Computed example of a mutant assay.
Amino acid sequence: MSALLPLRMVERPWGRHALPAPFTAPAGCKIGEVWFDPPAELSQLLVKYIFTSEALSVQVHPSDDQAPGQGKEECWLVIAADPGARLGVGFTRDIPPEAMRAAALDGSIEHLLEWHPVAAGDFFHIPPGTVHAIGPGIGLIEVQQNSDVTYRLYDYGRPRELHLDQGMKVARGEPYRRESHCRVPGSGSVTLVDGPRFRLDRLDGTGDARLAARYGERPLLVIPVSGSVRLAGETVGPGQCALAPALAALDPEPGAKLLIAQPA
């Protein structure tokens, strides 16, 4: 049985007709997301690639406490960004709920967000309740709780449903925590997320005793960012995601950079 996870291409109004290698969009389709179907062993996690030609909606996700079994904690690793590309995460100042709702209705919420200029290597952890938006001209890898609960607060006039009542109940009208954003160094293994719902590390080489202790002899997902890794007799490279029975099962080629993820 292959360790590679099946992928699905998802059309979005803000997607792209042409995708970067190794992906190819079907003719006439505007692909915004590439999903990897979660394996039964790690059904709590979902891995996606996201490619934007237009801005995504301003949105927010609930926590597991607010929506049992449907909470959505997520994170992004930017892998490509056009000049001037930005991510909107959190607000520039504290915003009370009534002011946030009014801004969502008149569209000014877009201008209340803090827009972060980004380049390949920028990483953002997005806890539930964080109001956010992805701008155009960005390619990123998203690792998230396996939930599709999204409350759209503003959608640039697109004819899609908004969810202001639900969104106002969970949205935090506050600036983004600086410690949730980092530039991933060019070399070395680094912890990117350490709970509460999942752990994520960027692995450079075979890892170390610290990572071995964190991940133990338990299944994990591996997403190559650059270079490839041998796993169960298969080569897994960028644009793919695979299930590994344990960290020790990975045999990365020299210089390979991998994301590894596991429920916390």
Rank of each mutant, 00 (worst) to 15 (best):
Q59M: 07
E234I: 11
P6E: 10
L220Q: 03
E73Y: 14
V47H: 00
I260N: 02
P159A: 13
A120Q: 01
E179R: 09
S226M: 04
V149K: 15
E161R: 09
A120T: 04
R214Q: 11
S43H: 07
A248G: 08
Q70R: 11
G233F: 15
A55D: 07
I260C: 08
I141V: 13
R101E: 15
L113D: 06
R101S: 10
M168Y: 09
C241M: 14
L4P: 07
L87M: 12
R86Q: 14
T150Q: 10
L46Y: 01
F123C: 02
R101P: 10
P159L: 13
G188N: 14
M100T: 15
D165K: 14
R178T: 07
L87W: 00
F124C: 01
L140F: 02
I223K: 01
A264E: 05
R8C: 09
Q66M: 08
V60E: 04
V170K: 00
P245Y: 03
P83W: 14
A212F: 12
G129Q: 10
I138C: 04
Y154Q: 12
R93L: 05
F124Q: 01
G239S: 03
E41M: 04
Q144H: 13
P20R: 03
V143W: 00
P263F: 06
L250S: 06
H125L: 03
G71W: 00
E234A: 13
A103Y: 10
E174N: 10
E174C: 07
A209P: 15
S43A: 15
L258H: 09
R178M: 12
A209S: 15
R8W: 07
L250K: 02
R178K: 11
V143T: 14
G157R: 14
A18L: 07
R177A: 02
L192Y: 09
C29N: 12
K30P: 11
G157C: 14
P26W: 05
R214G: 12
P175A: 09
V131Y: 01
P38L: 06
P224N: 00
A55S: 15
I109N: 04
A3G: 13
C75A: 11
R230G: 14
Y49R: 05
G129T: 07
E253W: 11
L140C: 05
V10E: 13
V170T: 05
G121I: 00
V190N: 05
R160D: 14
S43C: 12
R183V: 15
L19Y: 03
G227K: 04
G139F: 01
P263Q: 12
D122S: 11
D201Y: 11
G135L: 05
T92V: 03
F198P: 00
S57K: 00
L19A: 02
P117M: 13
V34L: 00
A81K: 01
P83L: 12
G167V: 06
L7P: 04
M100E: 15
G15M: 06
D82V: 02
Q262V: 09
W14M: 00
Q262L: 13
P6N: 09
R93C: 03
R199T: 08
W76K: 01
R214H: 13
R12Q: 09
P38K: 10
A209N: 08
A246V: 07
L56D: 01
A40C: 11
S189Q: 06
K257C: 10
F36W: 08
M100C: 11
R197P: 05
L113A: 10
Y215G: 03
L113Q: 12
I109S: 03
I138G: 00
S226D: 06
D204T: 02
F23N: 02
A242C: 06
L105W: 09
R177L: 08
